[in-house]
């Protein structure tokens, strides 16, 4: 029984790959590669892979720019895996909370001089992924979870 439970947990656990990155813009390439490779291995289309890479980039950029604005060499822990037909990305940081749902939708229809410069990253994350949730606590830091359903958007 114990062996069976252990095996079951292992099966669940190994679906998620974990990697820790130092919060610099220079590591965005590696983050896109990390999530992109897992999406590719699990049969996501090129368009879906691009969407997943872009969402992970935007989320990480926000952590680096806002959560770790005043903290040097902060860490971003990323877990990524394929669970029940969905790619799941969990990002954890210990910076200042930056809740994407607190960012208002940018004006994407106005003329050139009315458009806002900010808010586009979060807007893209929302458009490109199927679900985004955010939790923040003093004990465990900030946790952003993003899901992408396979085969849903071509």
């Amino acid at each position: 029984m114990a062996a069976f439970v252990e095996k079951m947990w292992a099966a669940i656990y190994f679906k998620m790959n974990k990697s820790v990155f130092t919060a610099h813009f220079e590591i965005l390439d590696e983050i896109r590669e990390f999530v992109g490779e897992i999406a590719r291995r699990n049969g996501f289309s090129d368009k879906e892979i691009y969407a997943i890479q872009c969402a992970a980039d935007e989320a990480s950029s926000n952590i680096i720019e806002h959560a770790y604005a005043e903290i040097e060499n902060g860490k971003i822990e990323i877990e990524c895996g394929f669970v029940d037909g969905e790619l799941k990305i969990v990002m954890r940081d210990n910076g200042k909370p930056f809740d994407p749902s607190s960012i208002p939708e940018p004006n994407i229809k106005g003329d050139l001089f009315e458009r806002e410069i900010g808010g586009l990253g979060v807007f893209l994350m929302r458009k490109l992924m199927d679900k985004i949730s955010y939790e923040s606590s003093l004990e465990s830091g900030n946790k952003l979870t993003m899901l992408k359903i396979k085969g849903d958007s071509g």
């Binding site: 890479q53 872009c54 935007e58 586009l120 990253g121």
Partner: peptide, 19 residues
Amino acid sequence: EYMSSAGFRTLLSSQRECK
């Protein structure tokens, strides 16, 4: 190969400057 919103922001400010 790839452009994130950071690139879009650059395009937007430069387009303003040019126009």
